[in-house]
Design a protein around this nucleic acid. Structure first.
Lengths: 194, 194
DNA sequence: AATTTTTTAGAATATTCTGGTCGATTATTC
DNA sequence: GAATAATCGACCAGAATATTCTAAAAAATT
């Protein structure tokens, strides 16, 4: 008897590569099966449908994004550096988490319930992280933000706005330049002027 | 009345991008049309079929390869430098001419007559270029090749052999390292030992 | 060794997708 | 205004693919 969870993880990992390359619709179950060296119907033993596999992939990538964000925030002490790392991780996520972003932006996938749920959950977590950064910055007298809650939401919304051109233009934009531009804009607005 | 040739070129260029990204089979006429902001059946006014468009794209890329090869050879005088440039252009072609190489390696496209024709034509042209380089090298006493004809064919065959891992591994290989390795191998065999 | 359970996969089925055509419409030219 | 060129959404036949079926193999249990 094989380890069911292990097999599921293998399927998710392989499917993620192929979905990432071709997108949900152009990826076939036959392709995933071939890459796994399994029969196509064997996959249905572990997953109910193609959509369920895609949901698992997107969920996996949302978790990856949260983990990476958390790790990057914890790696530095200064609220300014925390904010820099937040922006950097956010901007670079496009390359590594293409399924997550495809799920969000691809109109053809709008009928998938799970996408909105996953994003909502992720957004709440990100908001909590942002609030902590702002609160910490205020406490250390580095930021001057009256309402961390509102500001966190504003920053998150702005970051989402920056995602859009990144998605459509696909790597034609130098991400590092973008990161710096976003940070300049952000800090002039919230960095304490002394 | 619009310029028919201009429209055809626009279609080829746009189709090339999409074919390059998804391959012949996964690309749909609907996608090409949408990217061109045309109706799908409008494309059939300019091309007989999807296959005919793909043939035009592959032919275009073969021409591009030949042009680039010719330009690179002419840019230098030394036979050694010419051979270096030949290898370099050949190796780097993968990134820019994905349709041409897909057409060659993708078994699913074997039934397309035109692919073999285009490749045969290109190969003859490349052979002529190689023969000239070898002849020139012999004349300038830099190479010592008894039969330029056979050596040219051997080099071309070897280069084709090197293409295969490049194709399957897709950018996991550092091309520049490969170029240098190929050149070392080639020159130790034909560079005059003094 | 026999039986049961788990896992497997090719074939079949149901459903969706797509290449290509049709006929109507619009734009352009004469 | 007529003829020609260019346009495109609707449509269809056939291809492609998601999913199910069912039998067989493998693994686990008795």
């Amino acid at each position: 008897m094989v380890n069911k969870e292990e097999i599921r993880k293998r399927i998710i990992s392989t499917a993620r590569d192929i979905f990432g390359r071709y997108g949900f619709r152009k990826t076939t179950m036959e392709e995933i099966a071939r890459e796994l060296k399994m029969g196509k119907s064997s996959i249905y033993y572990y997953f109910k449908s193609k959509e369920e596999i895609f949901e698992a992939v997107v969920r996996y990538e949302a978790n990856l994004l949260r983990s990476e964000l958390t790790r990057a925030i914890k790696a530095v002490d200064s609220p300014v550096d925390k904010m820099k790392n937040y922006v950097r991780v956010r901007m670079k996520a496009f390359e590594k988490l293409s399924n997550y972003y495809n799920a969000i932006f691809d109109k053809n996938l709008d009928h998938f319930d799970f996408i909105e749920k996953i994003r909502a959950k992720y957004d709440l977590e990100e908001l909590a992280i942002l609030r902590l950064i702002l609160y910490d910055g205020n406490r250390k007298n580095v930021f001057r933000v009256k309402n961390s809650e509102y500001m966190a939401m504003a920053i998150q919304t702005a970051m989402k706005g920056f995602e859009v051109p990144l998605f459509w233009k696909k790597k034609e934009i130098d991400v590092e330049d973008r990161v710096n531009a976003v940070l300049d804009m952000l800090f002039y607005g919230i960095l304490r002027k002394e």
